[in-house]
């Protein structure tokens, strides 16, 4: 057991899951939400010559995905350090 106590192990996993769920919520809202479900409504707005919903489906979602992964990498590294389970 790398953790000092059972409670710390549980807390680490809980923090991890909560971070992942938050990021996946953004992932879902931007792609399935803006790009698919709300696309027709968003298309009434224009964004640099694009209809907004169309832009999210073809460009915006991809840009968001990249940002999400790097946020995850950074936040997980901080979490690993906080609970002292980072790699030596």
């Amino acid at each position: 057991m790398a953790f000092k106590s059972e409670e710390l192990a549980k807390a680490y996993w809980r923090d991890n899951i909560s971070l992942v769920l938050k990021l996946l919520a953004v992932w879902f809202i931007v792609s399935y939400g803006f790009g698919i479900i709300l696309v027709d409504w968003l298309n009434q707005f224009t964004f640099f010559g694009f209809k907004l919903g169309f832009w999210f489906a073809q460009q915006g979602s991809i840009i968001t995905f990249v940002i999400l992964i790097f946020v995850y990498v950074k936040r997980m590294a901080a979490l690993d350090n906080k609970y002292e389970v980072h790699e030596e």
Partner: peptide, 14 residues
Amino acid sequence: LMGWTGGYVLLALC
């Protein structure tokens, strides 16, 4: 476009 990039988020996080 979304399908073949969004999977990487699942891959990295889960």
